[in-house]
């Protein structure tokens, strides 16, 4: 395990010292306080509106991490031959992927933790000054929701590893990652819309069955639905949260196993 722990540590060090990471972390700290300004434009549901904006900010931060920090790391490794050095330490290819993934996933945590704590503080301050419009305890529910929002990004990180192990470099990785990112956010609401009774009535049975089948392999609780519920301080039942966590962790593992299988077989030119 020495080699995996050492590479996780190296990856963390590599990512945490990047200027892009430091900038994102600074933004993560500041943004919750700045969002209080647009929140004050609204009438009643101030806590809900601030939570909505904070969830959106979290999506932006995690997407930036994915595109500007995690994707270039793997692209550099393969394109600029850093992995040649690391693999000839020597390190098995599977262990290299696991360690790089572990390091990248762990690198999200400091930034996310600072963002969640800053958001929680901002929400509690808002609840303190506008108790009529913001329910008490909103900060804590946001902490839960914000933490849960990390899970789809861990699945996407697994998908990024799958893409980059099969791709030849940065441009290809980014194009496919962007497509996967767009699909992962657009497919669930499209499927949900297609299953509305008024739409479902107009489409042939076999398409309807196909849509239902595809929908069954996606998480039952979408992150959009989760964020909306938590913004209104309605915590979904534990069984739903558990299923959501397990489903995303399963996607992450599947993509990671596929990534290892591909990387084991590919030529590193």
């Amino acid at each position: 395990m020495n080699d995996i722990a050492a590479l996780i540590r190296l990856t963390l060090r590599e990512l945490l010292h990047q200027r892009a990471y430091i900038l994102l972390t600074a933004v993560a700290l500041l943004i919750p306080w700045l969002l209080i300004i647009p929140m004050s434009l609204f009438l009643i549901d101030l806590g809900k509106v601030l939570s909505d904006m904070l969830f959106a900010a979290e999506h932006v931060l995690l997407s930036c991490f994915l595109f500007f920090i995690a994707a270039p790391l793997m692209a550099r490794d393969i394109e600029q031959k850093v992995c040649h050095l690391l693999l000839t330490v020597p390190l098995k290819r599977s262990r290299y992927i696991i360690a790089r993934f572990g390091g990248t996933a762990l690198a999200i945590l400091p930034m996310l933790l600072l963002f969640l704590l800053s958001s929680c503080a901002a929400l509690e301050v808002v609840a303190h000054f506008w108790p009529v419009y913001v329910k008490a305890g909103i900060g804590l529910s946001f902490l839960l929701g914000g933490g849960m929002l990390l899970l789809p990004y861990l699945s996407l990180l697994g998908l990024l590893y799958l893409i980059s192990t099969a791709s030849s470099g940065g441009a290809e990785t980014l194009v496919f990652l962007l497509s996967a990112w767009l699909l992962s956010w657009s497919v669930p609401p499209v499927l949900a819309a297609l299953q509305q009774p008024e739409v479902n009535a107009k489409i042939p049975d076999w398409i309807s069955a196909l849509i239902t089948a595809i929908d069954h392999i996606l998480p039952h609780l979408s992150s959009g639905r989760l964020a909306l519920d938590i913004a209104h301080q309605h915590i979904p039942p534990g069984i739903q949260l558990g299923a959501y966590t397990l489903e995303h962790l399963a996607y992450m593992l599947i993509t990671l196993i596929l990534a290892i299988m591909i990387f084991e077989r590919r030529d590193l030119t």
């Binding site: 020495n2 722990a5 050492a6 550099r76 031959k81 040649h84 050095l85 020597p90």
Partner: peptide, 30 residues
């Protein structure tokens, strides 16, 4: 035995220091 390899002009991780790179190798090998 295990081979040590020096690739042709790899782009080293820019944020790491030389000592960090080598310490990684030592840690990985024990």
């Amino acid at each position: 035995s295990d081979a040590v390899y020096l690739p042709e002009q790899p782009q080293l991780p820019e944020t790491l220091s030389p000592l960090a790179m080598l310490r990684f190798k030592c840690r990985a090998r024990g």
